[in-house]
Every structure is written in C-alpha cells, then in structure tokens.
Design a protein around this nucleic acid. Structure first.
Lengths: 125, 125
DNA sequence: TCTATAATATCATTAGATGATATCATAACA
DNA sequence: TGTTATGATATCATCTAATGATATTATAGA
C-alpha cells in the first residue's frame, strides 16, 4: 500500500489547518488564532509552528500566496481541507466511541442506583 | 512548572485506557478490543502496545493485577481513569471548536444559498 | 523431548514537539 | 546615513512517541 500521505494529524496540525480555513494568513496570525480559539489551552511556539507550516507546504496542504518582507502568507488547499475534514471525522469517532463506552458503563453499573457517570457536554461553545 | 504527568494522550494511548475500563485484561486482549471498537481503523502492533503498557504502569495509570505464565493482566487505576476523562474533554473541545468553525463558515458563505457545508454526525453509533 | 502457540519484550528507525536562540526585513528616529 | 526596535521566520538540540521486524518466554499437547 502506498502510504496515504499524513495518516492522522496531531492537535497542533489540526488547529493550524482550522486557522487557515478562516482565510489566508501568516504563521504568527495562525498561532494567535489558535491561542484565542482554545482559550489558551493550546499555544504553539515558533519551532512547532514553522515546522508544521514547512511540512504542510511540502505535503500540499497549503501554499504560499504572498510574501511581504519576511512575512509569508499561506492559504489552505483542497488537499488541506480534505485532511482537515478527515481529522474531524477521526475526532468524532473517538468521542463517539467514548460515549458508547460511557453508556455501556452506566448500564453495567445500573442496579437501580441514582448515581451515574455523566456524559459531559461542553458548557458554552 | 513541574511537568504535569502525561499532558495529552495519543490516540493509541486513549484507546488502551478505554479498553482497560472494561475491566482488567492483558495486552493482547486490549489490542483486540481496540481493533473491534474502531472497526479496524486502529490496530496496535506489539511494539506500540507494550511500549504504552510499560509507560502507563510507570506513570501509575494502570497496575499489574495478575501474572499467569507469560500473561500479565492489568487494571486501570483512578489516576488512569482521570487521565482518560481528561482526554475525553480535550477531544470534545476539538470537536466543539471544529463545529463552531463550521457554523461560522456556513454563515459567512450564506447569501441565501441552498448549499451548506454539512456538520456531519456519525451515522450509527 | 519436540513442536506449536500465545503472549510479551526489544531493536532500530523515523517522525513530531518544543524551548531557546539566531536570523532577517522593515520602519522609525536621531 | 547609522542605530535601534519590532515583527516574523528559521534553525538547533533534545526528547518523546510510533512502529515493523524480530526475539524471547511459558505452557500445552503430541
């Protein structure tokens, strides 16, 4: 089997693509987007950031659309968008599996008890 | 800052903990659970599997509860359960962020069009 | 004892994450 | 025209994780 490009994305990679879906932007702006979007839960240092951008460009997930001095602006490609969507599906699969295990756990431990394991939803998204 | 144990889990690690939540089992059985649960989407080879088990035992996410010949049976600990739940939250955050971006994308591109980007739910979980 | 099998362990290689640091381009100002 | 500040990108060194391939070990059965 020919290795199917980047099989699955890391969290950092995923959020870089999410940023670029907003529209073309430079690395710094992508990092700022990520920090804001995750409310500070994920922050990319320069090493991580530019390593990912370089790999994504080589992989064809994004392309350079403008250079202004040192500032490089990138846009996501169709291939990048596809990788992003595939990753969303993978994440949904993980959450769905966790949910089904959670339900199973509750049934297993249900002897008429009031106590349940919560299947927590995110409060205010 | 003292490094907060294992900050976030890889997909393989996540599913190993999910398996152990079913109850104590050996490595091979955990791998079988994972393959079945993910419908073959994730398969751990021995190297990945035992590397994770060894790390988790050292980290205190699981402990050996029985040895029968070569077969070692592991049980998840409270700390492992906590790490699992934390990872579920992280995954939910990623999906929630993707969803909110998806809705934003639709609004942005909505000029009364019929065409929308789907926010796909998993079909039959 | 010999062989088969189930299960675990290790090796070697590759990829990804990251803090720290260096470099480069532009602008503002003396 | 320096000089300095700043914004942005690039690189280094180190560490962690993934993984196919292979080896080892324990038990059971012929």
């Amino acid at each position: 089997m020919p290795k199917k490009s980047l099989e699955n994305l890391t969290e950092s990679m995923f959020y870089v693509l999410m940023a670029l879906r907003r529209g073309p932007m430079c690395g710094i702006d992508a990092a700022a987007f990520i920090e804001e979007k995750t409310k500070g839960a994920l922050r990319l240092g320069p090493a991580t950031l530019y390593t990912i951008l370089a790999k994504f460009e080589k992989e064809g997930y994004l392309r350079e659309v403008a250079v202004d001095g040192r500032k490089r602006t990138y846009a996501i490609t169709d291939k990048g968008e596809a990788a992003y969507q595939e990753e969303v599906c993978r994440l949904r699969r993980c959450v769905a599996d966790a949910d089904s295990e959670g339900r199973r756990w509750n049934e297993q431990h249900d002897a008429g008890s009031e106590v349940r394991m919560a299947v927590p939803a995110l409060s205010g998204v």
